[in-house]
């Protein structure tokens, strides 16, 4: 048997397993993190430190009735959770976990990830619209206005990275940042120019928090206003798939931030293999996202749109022009 075919397929199955485990156990991490930030214990009954809680939750979700409420668009209502999960899983194909741990290195992998992220946004829109519930429809409209607002600064910031590294392949972008933390795109100290890239990092990180609908930008499921937003009518596995899709999107977002700005799988000082550094970096980012969620209050939708259109987009455009000028001059 030709090993060159089986190798990537085995990698793929491995990444899917990684994604599935993350999607389940990040729920536990979030509850535990939230609890300790609020001086509670969090899940602790099921297994040591409540570590088997995701399994118990999964069994509970699976034994619930799949109920289709009246007034829903039946087909769209069923498709939406599936559509939330599949693109997030597919994104894992192109993410380089290390120099040689990657299912497939694709030249347009940056664009592929953003295209898949947009499909994930459609899932929320469809789910909210098909539910036939007023909260869900308002939530769907908010998700669309928020996603389109934050996609622009995100893409423009990514374009500056593409400009500096001269590649749209995630593996190449990671390779260009090897050899110590001063080569990472967030610092870029070695030439003396591009030292302002931390601004681009901030813009990108804010956008990725907003794109994954996390607090303080979680307009889609603002509990105090919209009950559960687009998920209001979902129960059983539909709800479970939406939740797993959300956590997977966080993982993919953290991976992208790591690869684009934090040196990918590059080690800051030169010890430990790359894969460990990659995992350390993405889990630090995921912890930061959880930390932000349980620390800051939710903003309003209008303030949210103002932040994107009136601050982030002008800043990212200026950032693009300044980077172009620096490349030309130096």
């Amino acid at each position: 048997m030709d090993t060159s075919i089986w190798r990537p397929i085995l990698y793929l199955i491995g990444f899917m397993a990684f994604a599935g485990v993350n999607a389940a156990w990040l729920g536990w991490a979030e509850r535990k993190g939230a609890a300790h930030i609020q001086r509670r214990n969090g899940p602790k009954e099921v297994g040591p430190f409540g570590l088997w809680q995701p399994l118990a939750d999964g069994i509970k979700l699976m034994t619930k009735q799949l109920l289709i409420p009246s007034g829903t668009d039946d087909i769209l209502f069923r498709i939406a959770p599936i559509l939330a999960m599949i693109p997030a899983l597919t994104s894992m194909v192109v993410i380089p976990f290390s120099g040689n741990i990657q299912a497939r290195s694709i030249d347009m992998s940056v664009l592929l990830i953003f295209a898949l992220a947009s499909i994930g946004m459609f899932a929320i829109l469809l789910g909210g619209w098909a539910s036939g519930n007023k909260y869900a429809v308002i939530s769907a409209a908010r998700v669309v206005s928020q996603s389109i607002a934050y996609e622009i600064p995100m893409l423009i910031t990514v374009i500056t990275i593409v400009m500096i590294t001269g590649s749209t392949n995630l593996q190449d972008i990671a390779l260009a940042q090897q050899g110590g933390f001063w080569h990472w795109n967030i610092f870029r100290l070695e030439g003396g120019h591009f030292v302002y890239m931390w601004i681009a990092f901030l813009i990108y990180f804010i956008c990725s928090v907003a794109e994954t609908n996390r607090a303080p930008f979680d307009m889609a499921e603002a509990e105090s206003e919209l009950v559960a937003g687009y998920m209001t009518e979902y129960g059983s596995m539909g709800f479970g798939l939406f939740m797993m899709g959300e956590y997977l999107n966080i993982v993919v977002g953290a991976c992208m931030t790591t690869i684009l700005f934090l040196g990918g799988w590059g080690s800051p000082f030169g010890f430990l293999p790359g894969i460990w550094w990659f995992l350390i970096k993405i889990y630090i980012l995921i912890f930061t996202i959880i930390w932000i969620r349980w620390t800051y209050p939710r903003t309003q939708i209008y303030k949210l749109l103002n932040l994107s259109w009136k601050i982030l987009i002008p800043f990212s455009l200026v950032n693009l022009l300044v980077t172009a000028a620096f490349i030309k001059v130096f």
């Binding site: 699976m62 034994t63 619930k64 693109p87 899983l89 299912a103 059983s236 596995m237």
Partner: peptide
């Protein structure tokens, strides 16, 4: 490869929904 991973994702999701259908009261 991407097509195959979409297929794998569909199996993952379909499996979850099917198990739920079988187990649910």
């Amino acid at each position: 490869m991407i097509g195959f991973s979409v297929f794998l994702g569909a199996i993952f999701v379909g499996g979850a929904i099917l198990t739920s259908k079988l187990l649910a009261f």
